[in-house]
Structure formats: structure tokens, C-alpha cells
Design a protein around this nucleic acid. Sequence first.
DNA 1: AAGCCAGTTATGTATTACAAATAGAAGCCG
DNA 2: CGGCTTCTATTTGTAATACATAACTGGCTT
Lengths: 235, 235
Amino acid sequence: MAKPIIVRNLHGQVVQELGRQIVGGEIAPGENLPREELLAERLKVSRTALREAMKVLSAKGLIESRQKTGTRVRDTVHWNQLDADVLAWRCASMPTEDFVEKLVEMRELIEPAAAAAAARRRNDEQLARIEAAYAAMAAATDPDAWSEADLAFHEAVLHATHNELMTSLFSVIEAALGSYFQLSASIAGNFSYSLPHHKKVLDAIRRRQPEVAREAMQKMVADSRSNIRRHAKKT
Amino acid sequence: MAKPIIVRNLHGQVVQELGRQIVGGEIAPGENLPREELLAERLKVSRTALREAMKVLSAKGLIESRQKTGTRVRDTVHWNQLDADVLAWRCASMPTEDFVEKLVEMRELIEPAAAAAAARRRNDEQLARIEAAYAAMAAATDPDAWSEADLAFHEAVLHATHNELMTSLFSVIEAALGSYFQLSASIAGNFSYSLPHHKKVLDAIRRRQPEVAREAMQKMVADSRSNIRRHAKKT
DNA sequence: AAGCCAGTTATGTATTACAAATAGAAGCCG
DNA sequence: CGGCTTCTATTTGTAATACATAACTGGCTT
């Protein structure tokens, strides 16, 4: 999983290449990129393709181009930290520990609030979707199936909040955490231990009990965190 | 304030124009855009400029291009809801009420958690920045100065969390809420009433009391919400 | 009827040429 | 000599053109 990131287009590849280099720190903020003509030649692409890629990076806040001055890497405060690509590049480049910490912190922030909101606003169809995901988790016999159902569960909860900003934030965080998350779940004997937690969340949402749902989700996420920590120490 | 969004470049204008149309619903998801050649002619720009704009919109998840098939508007679930531009377009187009609701919900989610994290992890320099912002608020004599200092206060708190994901999320939300926020603050006699709230948050962060900081911030944001609601009803 | 094949049509890429902005050097003037 | 203007060189911005490539369509073949 973790998104194959198969890029069909040439400029897409260039975006990946340059984005990785910038976020990875190979080109420091404040530094200038080579002029377009040169860079295009170096990357073996036309200036057209290069420029299309640069517009994308520009939209992500990574670079800034001005005539005569050239193109420079912007300070990190201007980066769209919540962009899926930027996040992915950071995951690929950073000494994971403290960055995962930050991602987990975000998750612990979102999910309990989402569970509460879902308990307040869910409709029957959305509840059914959560229940279906729970059933799939209970029926899972291998880590992969369980992992997939788990993700579906959380997505269904987020969807029930009726707040697409929250949904979007979650999906971004989750995508970045994906690999670690899945790892922790796939530790032998570990998978499915959190089923009771999910049950509590589900019940609270069904009964429309926001605070109960929040607490249950909080516990679940805290558990998951210590799980990841434990696994991280092993490696 | 609220970001003038002055776009120097041609393709930047095209991005704004098309983005607004798509998010505003003038071109529905699933629908195809005219072919590049036609659209370029219609917008009075070259195909080159148009394509650079389309790559940006593509990066924001709004559209998807394939050879022969053409370019179609993607379903809203694929949109980068947390992108500053997308958010701005939504603000400009939507019947504000329920959307502001969602933004406020996000803010209520972030800020208390941020205050708690700041109380836990702030260093002296960051505390000083928060204190400076507070002092500026206390000294403000007109709504504009107060508003500016207020924003600086919140930004300083976010910065003290040492979690740039949180900072980034806040700045996006805040930018979108900006106009409404400022409106509510500029209601005569209203401005500066929330100073005591800010004092409580500041003190808690100074004393490194996460839970106290969280609660104080929670109250403050809840107050601000009822404020916005009250103002919204008037209009 | 099923499946293969070519032709049509959209986007994708490359190339060339010129426009516009601006940093920095050169020149001008008090 | 210092400060101002102007001029030029350089880099990105925009346009126009040509061709490559993918994929849908429809007809042909078996």
C-alpha cells in the first residue's frame, strides 16, 4: 500500500525528483535553482516539461520564481506542510522518529474529536458503513485484510462527521503514517487486539454519545501510539 | 487583509479563474473541460500558459487529464480541501453559514490542543513572543491593531507547539476565517473584551500547565464562536 | 459474435522565438 | 564624491508550432 505514486507524465516525474531533493534538504531554502535552460538539460527534459513541474512545486509553496532573479527555494514556513506529496517526501527523507511523533500527535488530535462529532451527527447510512467496517475487522483472518478494514472503519467515522475538512486532514495524515501504522498492526499476535476498542467507539456512535465516543477513541489512539513506539524501538 | 491575492503571472490568473469556476460549481465534477486549444482561445491565452495553470489545478486535485479522454473535473473527495486556494474559493462561493461552521469546528479542535502542547514544550524565546503579542493586544487602541496583535498571539502559541503541521493547519484555517474573524472583532465595543481570556492562556503556558492552557483556550474559542454567530445573525 | 486493427482525437513533449521584468553596472548631474 | 537615473544583460514569462503518444471508435476479419 502506501500509495505506489506511479507517475505517468514526465513533468510528474520531475516534480517528484525536485520535490524530493528540496524537502530532503539537498537544496537548502534560500538557495537558487539552476536556470531553467540548464536544469532542463541536466534533467534531460524540455524546458516546457520542467516549467510545468516548477509551477506545481510553486503551488505547493516550495519554490518561488521571479524574472531575472531566478528560482529559489522558499523557507520551510511557506511550504504546504499538509500537501500529500510534501508529507510523503518528508517521510522518505527524515530520520523518522520525531516526525512520526508529530504525525501521531495530529492523529490524536483529530480522531477523538471526529468520533465525538460522528456520534452527534451521523445518519443511519453512515452508521451502517461503520458497522460494516467493524464486521469486516472482526471477520479478518490475516493482517492485510484487518488493516484494510481498520482503515475503512476510521474513514467511515471521519465521513460521519459531515466535515470534509476533517476527512481530508485525516486522509493526509493517515497516508503519511500508513507504512508505520501497517507495520505495527502486522506484528504477529498483535493484530485484532484492538477490536474491543473499536467496538466501544462503534457503540457510542450508534447510541449518539459524543463524550463516550471521544474517550473510547482517545484510548484506542493512545494504545496505537505506544504500539508504534514499541515497534520503533525494536528497529 | 485577507490576502490580496495579487497574481503577477498569466497562468496564475488562469488558475484563479478556473479554480473559482470549478469550486463554485459552475463546472460540475465529472464534467469535461473544453479541449485545451479551445479553452486557451476562449481565455485569450496560449496553450502553454493554460497548461501550466492546469498542472497546478491538477496538483490541487481539482482536475485530471488523460490523453484522448480530455480533462475532467474530479469528484470533491479528491480535492485538496486544505489547500489555501481551494479554501479561499470555497469561501468566495459558498453560502457561508455551514462552511464557516466547519472552519470554526476545526479551529476549536486545533487551538486548545495547541495551547496544551505549547505549555508542555515552549521554550523561553517562544514564550517571549507570546508575551510580546499579548502586550501589543493590551496596548491596542483601535480594532485593526488589536486584530493584528491577536493573530500574532495565536501564531506564537502555534509556533510554540514545535509541530509545524499544526502551525500550517492553523494558518490555513485562519486565513479562510480571516474576514469573518476580523468582522466579529471590529464590532464596536466588542474588541478587547477577550483580553482576560488571553491572559489566562498566557499564564498557563508560562507556568507550563497544559490542561489549564487547554481549558482557557477552549473557553476563548467558544466565546469567539458565539460572537461570530451573533454577528452572522445580524446580517 | 468476439476480438483485432487502424484511424481519429485528445493530451504530452520538444523546440524556437520573442516579451517583460529587474538586478546591477554604467553614466550623469548636483 | 554621492546619489540619482538610465541602460543593458540575464532570467523567467508567453506564444506558436510541430510532432509523439495514448486511448476511444468503429469497422473489419475470422
